[in-house]
Amino acid sequence: MKFLVCLSKTPDTTTKIAFKDNNTKFATDGVQWIINPYDEWYALVRAIELKEKDPATIVHLICVGKEDSDPIIRKALALGGDEAIRVNVEGRDSFFVATQIAEVAKKGSYDIVFAGKETIDYNGSSVGGMIAALLDVPFVSLATKFELNGGTATITRLIEGGEESDEVNVPFVVSCQKGVAEQRIPNMKGIMGARTKPLQVVEEVMADALTSFVSFDLPPAKAGVKLVPADNPAELVRLLHEEAKLI
């Protein structure tokens, strides 16, 4: 089996979100970059677990981005990827990024492309589904469990009000979320080994961006909390009923 795991670079979850240049750009000064948690904790770790079960498996990583993505790619290699490919271009929108990845996926004839459920910055939840359509293969989204038996996977995915288990044969694309695997910390051996693992840089293919970010804004500040004394919970219920009119 040959896997391709998509990695996106996102701001650390504690980042204070601010914008610059007249609210047209995300202010990146001082931001710590991490692997998008859905990509790292779930997609990547599950791919590595499956390789541990079947050592013949090959796990390649792909990231669309400039050199400043190399640290997160090395970290992913330290966790256990075999090789990485970086498409040397700044992503423009989901379709642009998906087109780059689909191109690499086509050339490498991968059995499974793993993506995270969404990135924690732009929350598009789009790249996985787009890659599947570009490759014209099945897409199973929002996986919470992922078992592989030969060329057939049984994937449990979230649906409204429950879960559904699907059976699908390779090749396909899957997007992963909590439940698929558990976060791992790279060990010393992994970190040392990652330095010499191949990281191939390839140039972009022609692709359109179908959308563009015009500007950003922050949600309005809250007016402040109205505190109700602990010994009078009935007052809270009254406020929710009469003032907020929600219950």
């Binding site: 929108d93 989901s94 379709f95 998906a98 969404e118 929350n123 598009g124 939840s125 789009s126 790249v127 996985g128 589904g129 787009m130 890659i131 599947a132 359509a133 570009l134 897409f139 989204s141 929002l142 359109d208 179908l210 959308t211």
Partner: peptide, 17 residues
């Protein structure tokens, strides 16, 4: 989330999710 991205890619139609 499962369908809109695929349709966007197939039709080359811009998506905002």
């Amino acid at each position: 989330k499962a369908l809109a991205p695929g349709l966007s890619a197939k039709l080359k139609a811009g998506l905002v999710s």
